[in-house]
Simulated assay, not measured.
Amino acid sequence: MSKVLSNAQIEGFRKDGYIAPLRAISTERAAEVRGRLEAYERSTGGPLSGSLRGKPHLLFTWLNDLIREERIIDAIEDLYGENLLCWSSSFFIKEPADSAFVSWHQDSTYWGLSSPDVVTAWVALSESNKANGALEVVPGTHLKDQIPHRDTFSKNNMLTRGQEVAVEVDPNSAVMLELEPGEMSLHHVRLIHGSAPNPSRTQRRIGLAIRYMPTSVRQLEGEDGASLVRGVDTFRTFEHEPIPARDMDPEFVELHRKQHERAVKILYKGAKIPA
Rank of each mutant, 00 (worst) to 15 (best):
A124H: 07
S114Y: 05
V118D: 01
G54C: 12
H188E: 01
V189H: 02
I19A: 04
R257M: 07
L5C: 01
R211H: 13
R204V: 11
A275R: 15
R53W: 09
L5T: 06
A31V: 01
F13T: 01
D224E: 12
G162I: 11
N157E: 01
H142W: 02
G35Y: 06
I10C: 15
T152G: 11
E38C: 12
F92W: 12
N172Q: 15
R23V: 13
L208E: 06
L125M: 09
R36Q: 14
R71V: 07
I72C: 09
S26T: 13
R161Y: 07
V138Q: 01
N83T: 07
I10L: 14
G194F: 04
E221V: 11
I147N: 03
N156F: 07
S114V: 00
R262T: 03
A39L: 14
K269N: 11
A271Q: 00
A209P: 01
H57V: 03
V118Y: 00
Q203K: 15
D233Y: 02
P244A: 06
H142M: 14
P181I: 07
K269P: 04
P214F: 05
S227R: 07
D145M: 09
N172A: 12
E136P: 02
M176C: 07
S99K: 15
I243W: 09
F238S: 00
S173Q: 14
D78S: 06
R23M: 08
T237R: 10
K272D: 13
V217C: 02
K272Y: 12
C86V: 13
P116V: 09
S128R: 13
V137D: 02
G12L: 05
W111A: 04
M184G: 05
T141I: 01
S200M: 00
V118E: 07
L48V: 11
A196I: 06
R190N: 10
G225T: 01
E70Y: 06
H142G: 12
R23P: 01
S43F: 08
E41Y: 15
L177D: 07
S108L: 13
I210W: 06
E69K: 00
D65L: 06
E223I: 09
N157Q: 03
T237C: 09
K258L: 15
G133D: 05
G17P: 03
A97I: 02
G12K: 04
I243K: 14
V175E: 02
I192N: 08
I19D: 00
Y212V: 10
S185I: 11
D117G: 05
Q203G: 11
